[in-house]
Design a binder for these strands. Sequence first.
DNA 1: CGATAGTGACATGGTTTGGTGTCAGAAACC
DNA 2: GGTTTCTGACACCAAACCATGTCACTATCG
Lengths: 205, 205
Amino acid sequence: MREDPATPGRRYRGIAAGQRQEARRQRLLDAALACFGTQGYHATSVRALCAEAGLTERYFYESFANSEDLLRAVYETLVARLRADMAAMADRPDSVDAVLGVYFGAIEGDPRIARILFFEVLGVSPAVDQLYRQAMEDFAVLLADLIGPAGGDGTRRRIVGDGLVGAVVHIAMRWTLGHFGTPRPQVVAICADLLRAMGMADRRA
Amino acid sequence: MREDPATPGRRYRGIAAGQRQEARRQRLLDAALACFGTQGYHATSVRALCAEAGLTERYFYESFANSEDLLRAVYETLVARLRADMAAMADRPDSVDAVLGVYFGAIEGDPRIARILFFEVLGVSPAVDQLYRQAMEDFAVLLADLIGPAGGDGTRRRIVGDGLVGAVVHIAMRWTLGHFGTPRPQVVAICADLLRAMGMADRRA
DNA sequence: CGATAGTGACATGGTTTGGTGTCAGAAACC
DNA sequence: GGTTTCTGACACCAAACCATGTCACTATCG
């Protein structure tokens, strides 16, 4: 058990201790995506996570304090990746459609991501709720910047941002629940229309 | 134990058996609102519910199969009441503001309701998710009818409805998380603006 | 009054979980 | 080769929980 990740430690199968530990951590993150994204967070035990990762409980507690800690980690990973991919589209001419395309594409590509983002993370604990809150706030800022400059005061701006996020997230949620019955480009186009209309309401005020 | 609620049974303290049973059921529903709405669903045991209701476990299983069953019941009760109150405002001249006023008023009036509607009910089980799905669908229809006749095809109409619901619910959720920092009429007014703008986007298509 | 249905407090069994500990064997170092 | 670190399988324990059962006591009915 490496208490200090800085010390190199003994190599094992040609791999340094720190790298082995990091690899185990990554396998647990993958297992979390698999378990939380299919069975759900509350239906997943530490044992199940370890079995999925092909590791034993000892290595679980090496990287995470408990299963909520792992949930936070996997959520943060997913949100960060999604956010970076969306931000990369922000200065395109068709930025609204491009950003939404990334978002809906990620969800369609891996429904387990959708489940974690939309369901599993809610109502778990105050700490997780705080994380969710922050992610939604960031998302709101991103979308608000996307649809143009603000019109009203700060309060109005913030509420409109919440509305934007809510519309997008809920449409995406319902789209996944309907098992992607509508083609993605069509959903993206309608959603983009909506956002632009909401942005006009913001500026008109 | 009354297996058949139709048989009158012996009166007790001047109350018929069926009425006593119904009273116990109601007390459990109240306890569920109190416990699920403050501690949360997953942190609430059957024992805690019974203690809150002032009943013993036996009477719990008289009316509900398990604690998820009770969650479904209390959720359905809350949604039905909210829906009826909102529908009663649908034919007013200022229907959009009136309906939203009812919605936001209910949440502000009892934050436990908000917690159950927004958080506790999510990610519990497929059966509960199905209930949530249905409630959101009904809400979408109500809001879509509110903002006027449809413009595009059915698919577009449905997606726009999802967007309406998402915007309202998410604004309400964020409003509760911010502990009602913004006055309700202001939130309602902005939200109503947004809905009308989204309705125009729908008709323009 | 006596019998019975109803009630409430509590006991019990069986299962699951989180978190820790043990221990034999494999891989690396000297 | 001998020692040490690392690994993986599994045992263990206390706690919590669900669901059912027991039993004395009370109100009602005949």
